[in-house]
Write a protein that binds this DNA or RNA. Sequence first.
DNA 1: GCCGTTTTCGGCCCGACTGTTTTCAGTCG
Length: 571
Amino acid sequence: MDNLAIARILGEIADLLEIKNDNPFKIRAYRNGADIVANDPHDMASLDLKGLQEIPGIGKDLAARIREIADTGDAAFHQELLAEFPPSILDLLGLQGVGPKTVARLYRELGVKTLEELEEAAKEGRVRSMKGMGPKKETLILKAIDERRLHGGRHLLPDTHDAAVAYVAYLKAHAPDAQIEAVGSLRRGQESCGDIDILASGADAALMDRFIEYKLVERVLGQGDTKSSVRIWGGFQVDLRIVSPESRGAAMQYFTGSKAHNIVLRDRAIGLGLKLNEYGLFRVDDESRVGGASEQEIYEALGLAWVPPELREDRGEMNAAERRTLPTLIEHRDLRGDLHMHTTESDGRHSIAEMAQAAHAAGLEYIAITDHSRNLAMANGLDEARALAHAARVRAEDGRHGVRMLAGIECDILADGSMDLADDCLAQLDIVVASVHSAFNQDRQQMTERILRAIENPNVDVLGHPTGRLILKRAPYALDIEAIIEAAARHHVAIEINSQVDRLDLNDVQARLARDRGVRLVISSDAHSQAALAVTRWGVMQARRAWLTAGDVINTRPFDDFRALLRRNLR
DNA sequence: GCCGTTTTCGGCCCGACTGTTTTCAGTCG
């Protein structure tokens, strides 16, 4: 059982307890436990009861449940709950406007167990027969079911960003004096976002009318003086909150989240005799205002350094903010090189010279050309002869376009862990990025040993997109990432944060673990065209979420320094 | 269910909006 499988069961227990109307704090404990397990880079199944209980948020009972799930594949408690409710009703929970209370009543009073049965009941007007339900609620449920089928919910960070930027620009045009910006998970740089949160201060209520008139609005979900929600084309839900300027910082803090970060922050406020909400920070005794116009004001009043949004996940940032030891996070302009890109020689759209020119225009000092190797036939991968000839052409272009160039390859790690190209070929190149592009379905042990073998090959300098996940599309392959990270550290293999918008691989938690274990990281575009070089901004965002400084990422170094740090050049 | 030099018991974050209601429960973020 891997962490995600364990987390899924804990999360289902939380959902089922919620439908059962159980103790809300018990529900929170399970939900919190699921989050912890899902995000912890360590393999939970390998920890004993004592080790599990050392994790904050995991107590005696949750530790026992986790062990039970790891040992037997499930928890008896989970099975007991499932005996009370059919598992299919969990699908209903995700519907807009349908919560646990409604799900429980739909099941008890109407016998509704599935989306299809709910749709039928709503169409036949049976839902309105329930107390507190009416025709409007039925219509809303039917729309929610349609939208679920259409959109599925979440979006990639860059797509969310683009939609938000356009919406904010539209609002600013109608309220030029107001402060308007996107907050929420987008501001934290989370890899996928469920919705867009926009905050406006210094705007009058008329902005709400402009908000719902936006050309892409498909449906108004709710409208009030200070808060409105719409669904726009593309399946995004967008919320606008309007606050007064004196509350701007408090609202930014509040709506940027994360929820976990905010709970800890509020708890801290309570401990100081203060109350924090989206309007400001107040004394509990006389309700006087302590602050709220800026985020800095709030964090300082709570004895904390201002926390960059990317770190607000309750992963140790409070402690570091209190001790004033928050890292100076890497910024996009810190990148001097890009070490993973393709040309027309394999599946790229532009030539060596064109990629070099675009890199120079983007302000880079050096790049590596890393086309695919033979095994990736559909990408016209290179065999040894073509790889060496290609390398000669790269070296001939070196320095002619304003950037230094390394002749490299993205070499497939074959199913048995051997490299796709012969060692004497790889040894003649300047840099080798090793990646898995095939046999994704190997079991955990096979896949781990396969990648470990690649790391042990002295010609491998960088491990490319290490987990193979595609965000919102494909789960990472089964893999002991901790073992991979430790081996990479031991063998001085750098690990990539691949900036492709649907990869961002390593993810934030894994990249942080890698840094902690002494691995050198690189941030690369994996660009297949000139324009795609720009995606490194998302890789940098992920690196910031991993607490990385410029010093942790070796392609921030000047060319000669960087080159000396490549494994093949280490003495 | 978790947590704790104020506590091993009694806490646990907070407010807006909707639909169906005459004061509120449910949902959401």
